Simulated scan of single mutants.
Amino acid sequence: MDGISRVSIVTDKTEVALGFVQKVTDILRGREGAVAVQVIDASSPIRSRPSSGRATR
């Protein structure tokens, strides 16, 4: 990851609350060389499409 100076993490509030994002940002900030970290936690979790209720073959 040489030459990387900026990172954006796009996630949802649940991932932040569970501490996953903090683990990643801690690793990035602990690297040699400055890394600017931006966390965007306004997205919604991906939900699967509702089923039509019909079986498919």
Results as ranks from 00 to 15, higher is better:
56 T>A: 14
46 I>R: 10
22 Q>A: 12
17 A>I: 00
29 R>Y: 06
18 L>S: 08
53 G>Q: 13
10 V>Y: 12
35 V>L: 11
53 G>T: 14
19 G>W: 01
23 K>G: 14
56 T>S: 13
21 V>E: 06
16 V>T: 07
51 S>C: 15
39 V>P: 11
37 V>E: 03
39 V>F: 08
47 R>M: 07
36 A>I: 10
56 T>Y: 09
49 R>P: 02
31 R>H: 03
46 I>H: 11
1 M>S: 15
44 S>A: 13
33 G>I: 01
15 E>W: 00
37 V>S: 03
4 I>L: 10
25 T>D: 10
5 S>L: 07
57 R>L: 13
55 A>F: 14
28 L>A: 12
33 G>W: 03
57 R>M: 11
42 A>Y: 04
26 D>L: 02
45 P>E: 00
31 R>G: 05
10 V>Q: 10
56 T>C: 13
10 V>M: 10
30 G>Y: 14
15 E>P: 02
52 S>I: 11
12 D>M: 00
42 A>F: 02
3 G>Y: 05
2 D>Y: 06
38 Q>C: 12
6 R>E: 15
53 G>C: 11
8 S>E: 13
47 R>I: 10
26 D>F: 04
41 D>Q: 12
22 Q>S: 14
3 G>W: 06
4 I>W: 04
54 R>C: 08
55 A>P: 08
16 V>A: 06
51 S>A: 12
14 T>D: 07
20 F>Y: 15
35 V>G: 07
27 I>L: 14
55 A>Q: 10
5 S>W: 06
53 G>A: 10
28 L>H: 07
54 R>K: 15
17 A>W: 01
23 K>F: 12
21 V>H: 02
30 G>V: 13
46 I>M: 11
33 G>S: 02
21 V>W: 02
6 R>F: 09
2 D>S: 14
25 T>A: 13
52 S>L: 15
16 V>E: 05
47 R>S: 11
9 I>E: 02
46 I>T: 13
28 L>Q: 07
32 E>N: 11
2 D>Q: 12
57 R>Q: 13
45 P>D: 00
34 A>V: 07
43 S>C: 03
40 I>W: 01
13 K>W: 04
30 G>F: 12
56 T>R: 15
54 R>P: 05
55 A>E: 15
38 Q>D: 15
4 I>Q: 08
12 D>Q: 00
36 A>C: 09
13 K>H: 09
14 T>I: 10
19 G>I: 03
